[in-house]
Amino acid sequence: MSLAPGQQLLEVLAAVVLVTSWISLVHRRVAALVRLYAAQSAAMAAVAGLVAYLYNAPILYLTGATIFGLNAVLIPTVLLRLQRDLRVPDEVNMLVSVRTSGLAGLGCLLLAVAVVGPLTPYAEIPAAGLLPISVTVVLIGLFLTSTRRKAFTQVIGMLVMANGVFLAGLALTFGLGLLLELGVAANLLILAIVGRLFLFRMKDSFDTVDADALRALEG
Protein backbone atom coordinates (compact mmCIF):
# COMPACT_ATOMS: atom_id res chain seq x y z
CA MET A 1 0.00 0.00 0.00
CA SER A 2 1.64 3.14 -1.09
CA LEU A 3 -0.03 6.31 0.02
CA ALA A 4 0.26 9.93 -0.84
CA PRO A 5 2.65 11.63 1.56
CA GLY A 6 -0.11 13.95 2.75
CA GLN A 7 -2.37 11.05 3.60
CA GLN A 8 0.46 9.41 5.46
CA LEU A 9 1.16 12.55 7.45
CA LEU A 10 -2.51 12.63 8.32
CA GLU A 11 -2.25 9.14 9.72
CA VAL A 12 0.80 10.01 11.74
CA LEU A 13 -0.97 13.05 13.19
CA ALA A 14 -3.97 10.92 14.03
CA ALA A 15 -1.65 8.52 15.79
CA VAL A 16 -0.19 11.44 17.72
CA VAL A 17 -3.67 12.38 18.90
CA LEU A 18 -4.22 8.80 20.00
CA VAL A 19 -0.90 8.43 21.75
CA THR A 20 -1.16 11.71 23.62
CA SER A 21 -4.47 10.60 25.06
CA TRP A 22 -2.94 7.24 26.01
CA ILE A 23 -0.07 8.91 27.75
CA SER A 24 -2.45 11.17 29.63
CA LEU A 25 -3.99 7.99 30.96
CA VAL A 26 -0.74 6.84 32.51
CA HIS A 27 0.80 10.14 33.50
CA ARG A 28 0.77 11.21 37.12
CA ARG A 29 1.49 14.93 36.83
CA VAL A 30 -1.27 17.44 36.38
CA ALA A 31 0.87 19.99 34.54
CA ALA A 32 2.01 17.29 32.15
CA LEU A 33 -1.61 16.42 31.45
CA VAL A 34 -2.24 20.01 30.44
CA ARG A 35 0.80 20.04 28.18
CA LEU A 36 -0.23 16.75 26.65
CA TYR A 37 -3.60 18.27 25.96
CA ALA A 38 -1.91 21.21 24.32
CA ALA A 39 0.17 18.89 22.15
CA GLN A 40 -2.89 16.91 21.24
CA SER A 41 -4.74 20.05 20.26
CA ALA A 42 -1.80 21.21 18.17
CA ALA A 43 -1.86 17.88 16.34
CA MET A 44 -5.59 18.34 15.85
CA ALA A 45 -5.02 21.76 14.37
CA ALA A 46 -2.50 20.27 12.01
CA VAL A 47 -5.00 17.58 11.06
CA ALA A 48 -7.54 20.26 10.25
CA GLY A 49 -5.04 22.17 8.16
CA LEU A 50 -3.94 19.05 6.35
CA VAL A 51 -7.48 17.94 5.62
CA ALA A 52 -8.14 21.45 4.30
CA TYR A 53 -5.18 21.12 2.00
CA LEU A 54 -5.80 17.54 0.91
CA TYR A 55 -9.51 17.84 0.26
CA ASN A 56 -9.48 21.39 -0.87
CA ALA A 57 -11.71 22.76 1.88
CA PRO A 58 -10.21 26.18 2.66
CA ILE A 59 -12.68 26.86 5.43
CA LEU A 60 -10.89 24.28 7.52
CA TYR A 61 -7.76 26.40 7.60
CA LEU A 62 -9.73 28.78 9.74
CA THR A 63 -10.91 25.91 11.92
CA GLY A 64 -7.35 24.75 12.32
CA ALA A 65 -6.20 28.20 13.31
CA THR A 66 -9.06 28.45 15.80
CA ILE A 67 -8.24 25.11 17.34
CA PHE A 68 -4.61 26.05 17.57
CA GLY A 69 -5.23 29.40 19.15
CA LEU A 70 -7.93 28.24 21.47
CA ASN A 71 -7.20 24.65 22.41
CA ALA A 72 -3.46 24.49 22.01
CA VAL A 73 -2.54 27.90 23.42
CA LEU A 74 -5.29 29.69 25.28
CA ILE A 75 -6.95 26.93 27.28
CA PRO A 76 -3.67 25.30 28.40
CA THR A 77 -2.35 28.70 29.49
CA VAL A 78 -5.50 29.37 31.44
CA LEU A 79 -5.41 25.93 32.97
CA LEU A 80 -1.77 26.18 34.00
CA ARG A 81 -2.36 29.57 35.55
CA LEU A 82 -5.43 28.20 37.29
CA GLN A 83 -3.39 25.37 38.67
CA ARG A 84 -0.88 27.81 40.04
CA ASP A 85 -3.52 30.14 41.48
CA LEU A 86 -5.50 27.39 43.11
CA ARG A 87 -2.37 25.62 44.24
CA VAL A 88 -3.64 22.35 42.88
CA PRO A 89 -1.07 19.71 43.85
CA ASP A 90 0.73 18.31 40.84
CA GLU A 91 -0.05 14.71 41.74
CA VAL A 92 -2.92 13.07 39.86
CA ASN A 93 -5.19 11.16 42.19
CA MET A 94 -6.63 8.13 40.51
CA LEU A 95 -9.41 5.81 41.49
CA VAL A 96 -7.77 2.97 39.56
CA SER A 97 -4.12 2.05 39.20
CA VAL A 98 -1.94 3.40 36.43
CA ARG A 99 -1.66 -0.06 34.95
CA THR A 100 -5.40 -0.52 34.84
CA SER A 101 -5.74 2.88 33.21
CA GLY A 102 -3.21 1.91 30.57
CA LEU A 103 -4.99 -1.32 29.78
CA ALA A 104 -8.29 0.54 29.75
CA GLY A 105 -6.84 2.77 27.05
CA LEU A 106 -6.21 -0.31 24.97
CA GLY A 107 -9.71 -1.50 25.74
CA CYS A 108 -11.10 1.81 24.48
CA LEU A 109 -9.29 1.36 21.19
CA LEU A 110 -10.46 -2.22 20.76
CA LEU A 111 -14.00 -1.20 21.61
CA ALA A 112 -13.86 1.60 19.08
CA VAL A 113 -12.51 -0.77 16.45
CA ALA A 114 -15.23 -3.25 17.21
CA VAL A 115 -17.97 -0.62 17.02
CA VAL A 116 -16.77 1.72 14.31
CA GLY A 117 -14.26 -0.43 12.52
CA PRO A 118 -16.74 -2.07 10.18
CA LEU A 119 -17.77 1.36 8.92
CA THR A 120 -14.44 2.10 7.34
CA PRO A 121 -14.90 0.01 4.21
CA TYR A 122 -17.77 2.31 3.24
CA ALA A 123 -15.32 5.08 2.98
CA GLU A 124 -17.13 7.63 0.90
CA ILE A 125 -16.06 9.92 3.65
CA PRO A 126 -12.44 10.67 2.78
CA ALA A 127 -10.94 10.73 6.24
CA ALA A 128 -13.07 7.90 7.61
CA GLY A 129 -10.00 6.21 9.01
CA LEU A 130 -9.92 8.93 11.64
CA LEU A 131 -13.29 7.90 13.00
CA PRO A 132 -12.25 4.96 15.20
CA ILE A 133 -9.45 7.08 16.62
CA SER A 134 -11.83 9.89 17.44
CA VAL A 135 -14.19 7.46 19.17
CA THR A 136 -11.24 6.10 21.13
CA VAL A 137 -10.26 9.59 22.21
CA VAL A 138 -13.82 10.30 23.33
CA LEU A 139 -13.87 7.09 25.35
CA ILE A 140 -10.51 7.84 26.91
CA GLY A 141 -11.70 11.32 27.83
CA LEU A 142 -14.73 9.76 29.44
CA PHE A 143 -12.53 7.34 31.32
CA LEU A 144 -10.26 10.17 32.49
CA THR A 145 -13.25 12.15 33.68
CA SER A 146 -14.70 9.28 35.61
CA THR A 147 -11.63 7.85 37.26
CA ARG A 148 -9.74 10.94 38.39
CA ARG A 149 -10.43 12.40 41.79
CA LYS A 150 -9.70 16.05 41.33
CA ALA A 151 -12.17 18.29 39.60
CA PHE A 152 -9.22 19.85 37.85
CA THR A 153 -8.18 16.62 36.18
CA GLN A 154 -11.79 15.85 35.44
CA VAL A 155 -11.99 19.06 33.46
CA ILE A 156 -8.96 17.96 31.47
CA GLY A 157 -10.73 14.68 30.79
CA MET A 158 -13.70 16.60 29.44
CA LEU A 159 -11.45 18.65 27.23
CA VAL A 160 -9.86 15.49 25.84
CA MET A 161 -13.33 14.18 25.19
CA ALA A 162 -14.20 17.37 23.36
CA ASN A 163 -11.10 16.94 21.23
CA GLY A 164 -12.35 13.50 20.31
CA VAL A 165 -15.70 14.93 19.27
CA PHE A 166 -13.83 17.48 17.23
CA LEU A 167 -11.88 14.84 15.44
CA ALA A 168 -15.05 12.95 14.65
CA GLY A 169 -16.56 16.09 13.27
CA LEU A 170 -13.49 16.60 11.16
CA ALA A 171 -13.58 13.03 9.91
CA LEU A 172 -17.22 13.01 8.95
CA THR A 173 -18.50 16.49 8.19
CA PHE A 174 -15.56 18.63 7.29
CA GLY A 175 -17.51 19.89 4.33
CA LEU A 176 -19.98 21.85 6.40
CA GLY A 177 -17.47 22.51 9.06
CA LEU A 178 -17.02 25.98 10.36
CA LEU A 179 -20.27 26.46 12.19
CA LEU A 180 -19.95 23.19 13.96
CA GLU A 181 -16.33 23.79 14.80
CA LEU A 182 -16.97 27.23 16.09
CA GLY A 183 -19.88 25.94 18.06
CA VAL A 184 -17.82 23.28 19.72
CA ALA A 185 -15.00 25.71 20.28
CA ALA A 186 -17.30 28.16 21.92
CA ASN A 187 -18.64 25.37 24.08
CA LEU A 188 -15.16 24.55 25.11
CA LEU A 189 -14.40 28.06 26.09
CA ILE A 190 -17.56 28.20 28.12
CA LEU A 191 -16.63 24.90 29.65
CA ALA A 192 -13.28 26.29 30.66
CA ILE A 193 -14.81 29.39 32.14
CA VAL A 194 -17.49 27.44 33.94
CA GLY A 195 -14.88 25.05 35.14
CA ARG A 196 -12.81 27.91 36.41
CA LEU A 197 -15.72 29.42 38.26
CA PHE A 198 -16.75 26.06 39.54
CA LEU A 199 -13.28 25.35 40.83
CA PHE A 200 -13.05 28.70 42.55
CA ARG A 201 -16.40 28.21 44.19
CA MET A 202 -15.48 24.78 45.27
CA LYS A 203 -12.20 25.92 46.66
CA ASP A 204 -14.00 28.63 48.59
CA SER A 205 -16.70 26.38 49.95
CA PHE A 206 -14.78 23.23 50.70
CA ASP A 207 -11.21 24.38 50.77
CA THR A 208 -10.33 21.64 48.34
CA VAL A 209 -10.72 20.80 44.70
CA ASP A 210 -11.03 17.12 45.31
CA ALA A 211 -14.36 16.15 43.80
CA ASP A 212 -14.72 13.39 46.34
CA ALA A 213 -15.24 16.08 48.94
CA LEU A 214 -18.65 16.64 47.36
CA ARG A 215 -19.73 13.43 49.00
CA ALA A 216 -19.92 15.41 52.20
CA LEU A 217 -23.02 17.04 50.75
CA GLU A 218 -24.84 13.75 50.81
CA GLY A 219 -28.04 13.77 52.93
Binding site: M1, L18, R99, G102, A123, A127, G129
Partner: peptide
Protein backbone atom coordinates in the same frame (compact mmCIF):
# COMPACT_ATOMS: atom_id res chain seq x y z
CA UNK B 1 7.09 -0.93 40.87
CA UNK B 2 6.42 2.01 38.58
CA UNK B 3 8.43 0.19 35.94
CA UNK B 4 5.41 -2.08 35.59
CA UNK B 5 3.46 0.97 34.41
CA UNK B 6 6.07 1.49 31.75
CA UNK B 7 5.72 -2.12 30.70
CA UNK B 8 1.96 -1.83 30.46
CA UNK B 9 2.33 1.32 28.40
CA UNK B 10 4.63 -0.53 26.04
CA UNK B 11 2.09 -3.36 25.70
CA UNK B 12 -0.61 -0.83 24.95
CA UNK B 13 1.51 0.85 22.33
CA UNK B 14 2.46 -2.42 20.66
CA UNK B 15 -1.01 -3.90 20.65
CA UNK B 16 -2.40 -0.55 19.61
CA UNK B 17 -0.03 -0.62 16.69
CA UNK B 18 -1.48 -3.93 15.54
CA UNK B 19 -5.01 -2.60 15.76
CA UNK B 20 -4.00 0.62 14.06
CA UNK B 21 -2.66 -1.17 11.01
CA UNK B 22 -6.25 -1.81 10.12
CA UNK B 23 -7.69 1.53 11.17
CA UNK B 24 -6.05 4.17 9.14
CA UNK B 25 -4.87 3.71 5.64
CA UNK B 26 -8.37 2.89 4.49
CA UNK B 27 -9.58 6.44 4.06
Amino acid sequence: FRVADLAVLSWVLALGSISLTYLVGVG
